[in-house]
Design a binder for these strands. Structure first.
Lengths: 334, 334
DNA sequence: GCTTGGAATTGGAACGTTCCAGATTTAGCG
DNA sequence: CGCTAAATCTGGAACGTTCCAATTCCAAGC
């Protein structure tokens, strides 16, 4: 097997200089159309593949974006990652996706590895815990980086934070349940003390307080399993719940099926995130919809503007959310 | 902002030559311990970050593995991708994950981009359709590459194929349903004509034929939505089903909840893949378990052996599967 | 003190691209 | 036809690392 062809080989075959080939590679306007075509033809004939490492050495702009996600198995994050990756791919950027699995140390390692690989920007949905290491590395490297969906680095402006207006969402859900006639509403799921839990809960608490009612909350892992068990631990007078996320709500939905309670009538339930499953279970699950696809696209666009034109995104941004009322809270069949 | 430090700067500070620094970088045994420590200290002091692009230029071994997945939103693939990435990360390899979204053209683009980025190996779960472009590119680049979970490139040996023994799994599931007393068993889900559908169905057909029974199948998208609707389209005498995958089965499970049929008694259901949700819905869903984590780890190990030691994996490998019987088919509560 | 051989270190070349400054060609115009 | 300006093209130099062959260092043995 022979050595990979380089632009030198292409140049020789096309009868031009390597500089011209380089210009063609960069779609420069200052090369004549017929020369360009000749060079392109030579590339194909010779089976040339671009050597990004060499290019990157000379001028460090990799066309590579790093994406570190705390829990890639969670459909919410998967959706985000997928759409972000595809949007960036459409603009010619490759995306390195990695899963930190809620491990701050692993997260730091992944970030380090990505920086070594020369990513030109990073998007991080940070793991809980001290993300200091990771963010310090990014700061030293001087790379544009955003915190999305979660914020663990407190310095404002350095790593712009972008997420959804969760508090407004849970407030909206709580009011909706009250309007449906719920007497006592619980908040279920999310690990206590964590920023997102508190944020999603804050809207609930505000509305409960405004109505002069008594709050009740049950905290734990944000999984179906937790939701499944949670139904047994609710006080008897609780007849509605706002869940930390859809996984918990879907778990509870299965839990009510188990104990034979009729969701949407005996009990009213609202999830959070509106993942695809919500409309595909029975009864259909009401949920606070976050437009992840739109959010991911906006993130990609903001990042591109930052990388290419130096336009720093606003230090903090919250995308609006929307309540999707379905059977599990209204009792009405679709 | 000043220029990034290089090994030259580190060398100057540590009072050694660049070659020595390079040796330290590679954990060479032939550098004295105290020199090594001095160099390491200098690196930290000066804030040195390794420039992989430069290294890669000189000796092309990127420590980068490409992973192209046909549908990253499917939990089955997400799990595989996640574990593969984490296993490789533990061995010092970064993974570029990309989603082709069942688009063969996009898949070819992604593969091309990864090759440009200098991946030292590729793992592809190919999109349906003509993956020729993608695989031809890989062949030209001469990179180790595996087809996993799906096979679209027919050439044997070039791109070793590794998957699960689906036929044995569906046969096992079908026998299990018969043993449970099912009278008429259907096969539900999967797009007709596709290799995996046929494979998963073949075990079912073989067992049905062996029992002298009449097969019945319902094909379509492998989603919860399809399963949800499928329950309305089953003939009345069908009292059990083997599903193409868990998503379809979970959809059917919701469908039976909707029409108030008692799963595990009126109807017996087995899914395929044993995704996490199976044990977290009600009733719990029986499923043919594929040990994805083990499979992903084995894939990573095989790939590493191939990359590092030139050990080609067997051209075709099928990992065993296991039936996990739960309430949806046995009627027994856990 | 001198030799010896292994351990430790070193300088230079090479990798394939981009960028720059200049060189060459082409086109337009009096 | 000669001049100028614009359009095109080109030959180094540079990027930061690794690899190789060569050199220096050091301790042990005589």
């Amino acid at each position: 097997m022979t050595r990979r062809p380089t632009i030198l080989d292409v140049a020789a075959l096309a009868g031009v200089s390597k500089s011209t080939v380089s210009l063609v590679l960069q779609n420069s306007t200052q090369v004549k159309a017929e020369t360009r075509d000749a060079v392109r033809a030579a590339m194909i004939e010779i089976g040339y593949v671009y050597n990004r490492a060499a290019a990157q050495m000379r001028s460090p702009s990799a066309g590579l974006v790093g994406l570190v996600i705390n829990d890639l198995r969670n459909p919410f994050f998967t959706e985000f990652a997928t759409v972000l990756q595809m949007t960036l791919a459409a603009k010619g950027y490759a995306t390195v996706i990695a899963n930190s699995d809620e491990d701050a140390d692993l997260q730091a390692k992944l970030v380090g590895s990505m920086i070594e690989h020369g990513v030109s920007a990073l998007v991080v949905s940070p793991a809980y815990g001290d993300g200091g290491d990771a963010f310090d590395q990014i700061e030293r490297a001087g790379i544009p980086a955003m915190q999305v969906l979660r914020k663990t680095d407190p310095r404002t402006g350095l790593f712009p934070f972008s997420s959804f207006d969760y508090a407004a969402g849970s407030a909206r859900a709580t009011r909706h349940l009250m309007n449906q006639g719920a007497q006592r509403i619980a908040f279920v799921g999310g690990l206590e003390g964590r920023a997102i839990t508190e944020e999603r809960k804050s809207g609930y608490l505000a509305e409960i307080k405004r109505a002069g009612a008594e709050p009740f909350s049950l905290h734990g892992r944000s999984s179906r399993g937790f939701g499944l068990d949670a139904v047994d631990q609710l006080p008897d007078d609780v007849d509605a719940a706002v869940c930390f996320n859809d996984l918990v709500a879907l778990g509870m939905l299965s839990g009510f099926a188990r104990i034979g309670r009729n969701l949407g009538q005996d009990f009213r339930l609202v999830g959070f995130d509106d993942i695809e499953d919500c409309a595909q279970v029975w009864p259909q699950l009401s949920s606070v919809a976050c437009d992840i696809d739109g959010f991911a696209r906006a993130t990609a666009d903001g990042l591109l503007a930052w990388m290419r034109d130096g336009v720093t995104p606003p230090p903090e941004h919250r995308a609006p959310v929307e309540l999707i009322a379905r059977t599990s809270s209204t009792g009405r069949m679709p």
